[in-house]
Amino acid sequence: MSQLRWLLRAKRWAQNPPSKSRVKFVFAIIAVCVALYGVEKLVGLPDWMQVNGASKIKVRPVP
């Protein structure tokens, strides 16, 4: 059933495609995400975003 839904959606897109500005907007968002990923891989995360491992706080069960 989902294949039929995707075919109907593709038909609607073919009949009424998105505007050029919408396509540019989506590609700009994708480019920003790829740039952020690249900066993260090249430079790394700041210290405040790192996970410090297990917590040192011990929680005692309530008697």
Rank of each mutant, 00 (worst) to 15 (best):
K58G: 04
L7D: 12
W13T: 08
M49L: 15
L4G: 08
R60F: 10
P17F: 04
R60I: 09
F25W: 08
S55H: 01
V39E: 01
A10F: 10
A10N: 10
P63Y: 03
K24R: 13
V43K: 11
P17M: 04
M1N: 06
G38P: 00
K58W: 03
V62G: 05
K58D: 05
Q15I: 03
A10V: 06
P18H: 02
A54H: 05
K20S: 11
A10H: 08
P18V: 03
F27Q: 10
G44L: 10
G38L: 14
P46E: 05
M1H: 08
A10Y: 05
P18C: 03
F27P: 00
K41Y: 07
P46N: 06
V62K: 14
A10T: 08
K56E: 10
S2E: 13
P61E: 14
V32T: 09
A10Q: 14
S55C: 07
V43Q: 10
N16A: 09
A35E: 01
N16F: 06
V23F: 02
R9E: 14
L4K: 10
S19E: 07
V62S: 11
V62D: 11
G53P: 02
I30G: 04
L42V: 15
Q15G: 05
K24D: 10
I29Q: 07
P46R: 06
K41L: 13
R9N: 11
R9K: 15
K56Y: 01
A31I: 01
L45C: 04
